[in-house]
Amino acid sequence: MVEQDKGCHLPITRRELLLASASSAMVATTAVDAAASSTRPASPRPGVPTAQVTLAVNGKPHTLTLDTRTTLLDALREHLQLTGTKKGCDHGQCGACTVIVDGRRINSCLTLAAMHPGAKVTTIEGLGTPGHLHPLQAAFVKHDGYQCGYCTPGQICSAAGMLDEVRQGIPSHVTGDLAAKPLLSIDELRERMSGNICRCGAYSNIVEAITEVANGGVA
């Protein structure tokens, strides 16, 4: 918790720092593409088909006019500057882009923003804040459920959705009796989280973090 509070008081965020260093690097080499380095929402290029969509992201409504090709992931990151959600493989294989849409965890890279008019989207920024961590966020910190941290927002959003699925009695591939209400054993947890890859291999600590929250009954 102490470390989280420290992070909260940093004068600039990591992304702002990275953008600043990227801009200065470009100045040093070639001309700067103002649009590319800007943190303002990207406008669709003239002549490209667009679609309008209103999304409620972390409780706040946003109406966006987007190039139809914009995935939900790119809408969150590039248009709403919610960069907690990560782009890993961009093909639904790694789970880094997992967000919760209308109560369900999905891969935000494999769906178009335009397919979700009126949807309620929860990202890692909406689950908790540095001062008020979601129990899963606190448990990942406590159990060191990451190394580089890139997969972590997806792991945490996925775990939140997964625990909800268990509460709803949704079975999994390793559920022994389809007629019974599933319980969250280690085998169940591993199977249900198989859509989230951690290249650092922090799996054992991720399992411990999620297990603690599951046993505490809050997520």
């Binding site: 789970g95 965890r105 999905i106 891969n107 699925e165 079975p171 999994s172 249900r192």
Partner: peptide, 15 residues
């Protein structure tokens, strides 16, 4: 049920 649960990941099955 068994065939569906053997396929893809939790996130993909939700969609």
């Amino acid at each position: 049920s068994r065939a569906l649960l053997a396929g893809a990941s939790g996130q993909l099955r939700n969609k």
